[in-house]
């Protein structure tokens, strides 16, 4: 597991809870410390039996370079969402990982095929896209890039199933399934509000009244309007379909620093 941030640490916990031996590679010392504390907590929740949780914790080795983890069967990258960073990691994996290893990226918005390019073994590269928080969310999108082999996809599916999660195989297209198909949930709300048809509270009430757990405005406030807008932008810029064009209202709010809960103000006020 490369990168021990929000996603990497959670994925490592799920894998060790499912009896995998895990090397968790993290460059930053501070992130390693945070990850160690987070792992204890997550494993405690995943495995209520204290001895089991402790054993699972013992199956994870926190290290600071891929050079210390050269015997892996499966490598999963979860470093920040920057193409060059990911490519550097994959170039390193191509040098250090065993020839038969499965190489996977947890990217949400980059093309798996692009990330795989510097490896020279694109047939072994797939996306394994977890959702946040990864230890809890059951869905995992297994991304088949153009050059991914059937065998690589099969191994990724099997891995996800062994974690007790539900794999859905998707093609390497912008936003895959979930981040793409969810766009209208936010965009239609933003468009209705921008057109003056309703305010945020009304939109949320109507949609929560239809069974959505959280209305789109409350949800954008929780996710962060900037993070949500970045996802819409990345899908739009990769497709240029009018349906998915980012909302000018959301762009204005982000420019004004109305980002949601984290800035105390988004569609709603959260006090200072």
């Amino acid at each position: 597991m490369i990168g021990a941030g929000t996603m990497g640490a959670g994925i490592a916990a799920s894998a060790s809870a499912a009896n995998y031996e895990v090397y968790l590679v993290e460059l930053a010392a501070a992130a390693r410390e945070r990850a160690a504390a987070g792992l204890t907590k997550t494993l405690g929740r995943l495995l209520p039996d204290a001895a089991g949780a402790e054993a699972a914790f013992g199956r994870i080795r926190l290290v600071d370079s891929v050079a210390q983890a050269t015997s892996g069967d499966i490598y999963i990258e979860a470093v920040p969402e920057v193409l060059d960073l990911k490519r550097t990691v994959f170039a390193e994996l191509a040098r250090l990982a065993p020839a038969g290893a499965l190489l996977a990226t947890n990217t949400s918005s980059l093309a798996v095929g692009e990330i795989a390019r510097p490896t020279g073994r694109a047939q072994s590269v797939v996306g394994i896209h977890f959702f946040n928080p990864p230890a809890v969310m059951k869905l995992v999108e297994v991304v088949r890039a153009e050059q991914s082999s059937d065998e690589s996809v099969r191994r990724a599916v099997e891995f996800v199933e062994r974690l007790g999660k539900t794999p859905v195989v998707v093609r390497d297209t912008p936003g895959f399934v979930v981040n793409r198909v969810a766009r209208p949930y936010y965009l239609e709300a933003l468009r209705a509000i921008d057109a003056g048809a309703a305010d945020a509270e009304c939109v949320d009430a109507v949609l929560e009244g239809l069974g959505f757990k959280m209305g789109p405005c409350r949800l954008m406030d929780l996710i962060g309007l900037d993070v949500n807008l970045a996802t819409t932008r990345s899908v739009y810029e990769a497709t240029h379909v009018e349906r998915l064009r980012p909302s000018p209202l959301q762009e204005r709010m982000v420019a004004e620093g109305r980002l949601g809960r984290k800035s105390s103000r988004g569609f709603y006020d959260y006090g200072a």
Partner: peptide, 26 residues
């Protein structure tokens, strides 16, 4: 959008529905 995703071969109709139910709060 779900139908366009199926049309573009991103995943089957059943998989799109399954992914949305498990991956979102719908």
């Amino acid at each position: 959008e779900a139908a366009w995703a199926v049309t573009h071969g991103v995943a089957s109709a059943d998989d799109v529905d399954r992914a949305m139910q498990l991956g979102t709060n719908y």
